[in-house]
Simulated assay, not measured.
Amino acid sequence: MPLPVLSRPPPITTTTPRGAGHRPFPSPRSIFPFPSLSSAPNPIPFLRLPSICAPSLPPPPPPPLPPPVGFEKPPPNPFRPPNSLPLLIVFAGLLSAWAFFHALPADFRERWCRLQESSKGAEAKILELPLHLIQAVIASEDRRFFYHIGVDPYGIGRAVVRYPKGGGGSTITQQLVKNVFLTSEQKISRKFFEGILSLLLERKMSKWEILYSYLSKMYWGHGNYGIESASLFYFRKHPSLLNLGESALLAGILPSPETFNPLTSPTRSKNSQAKVLRRMVTAGFLDLETALVAVSQPLYFA
Score class of each variant (00 low, 15 high):
residue 60 P to D: 04
residue 84 S to W: 14
residue 104 L to I: 07
residue 49 L to S: 08
residue 134 I to Y: 03
residue 267 T to Q: 08
residue 225 Y to A: 05
residue 90 V to W: 13
residue 219 Y to N: 15
residue 151 V to E: 02
residue 261 N to P: 02
residue 152 D to Q: 10
residue 193 F to C: 15
residue 277 L to S: 03
residue 216 S to M: 13
residue 279 R to A: 07
residue 85 L to H: 06
residue 102 H to L: 08
residue 278 R to Y: 02
residue 235 F to S: 07
residue 201 L to W: 01
residue 268 R to M: 01
residue 16 T to A: 13
residue 137 V to T: 07
residue 282 T to D: 11
residue 184 S to N: 14
residue 268 R to L: 09
residue 220 W to T: 09
residue 221 G to F: 04
residue 251 A to N: 01
residue 105 P to N: 09
residue 243 N to D: 11
residue 40 A to L: 11
residue 157 G to H: 12
residue 72 E to C: 08
residue 125 K to E: 10
residue 55 P to Q: 08
residue 220 W to K: 07
residue 287 D to V: 03
residue 288 L to M: 12
residue 207 K to I: 04
residue 253 I to T: 07
residue 114 R to D: 01
residue 291 A to M: 03
residue 277 L to C: 01
residue 135 Q to M: 08
residue 240 S to Y: 01
residue 162 R to N: 15
residue 159 A to P: 03
residue 165 K to R: 12
residue 133 L to Q: 02
residue 254 L to P: 00
residue 166 G to Q: 05
residue 246 E to L: 01
residue 118 S to C: 06
residue 2 P to K: 13
residue 214 Y to P: 00
residue 77 N to S: 07
residue 205 M to P: 02
residue 88 L to T: 09
residue 95 L to C: 13
residue 157 G to S: 14
residue 62 P to H: 12
residue 262 P to M: 02
residue 174 Q to N: 04
residue 7 S to T: 10
residue 85 L to Y: 06
residue 99 A to Y: 12
residue 245 G to Y: 00
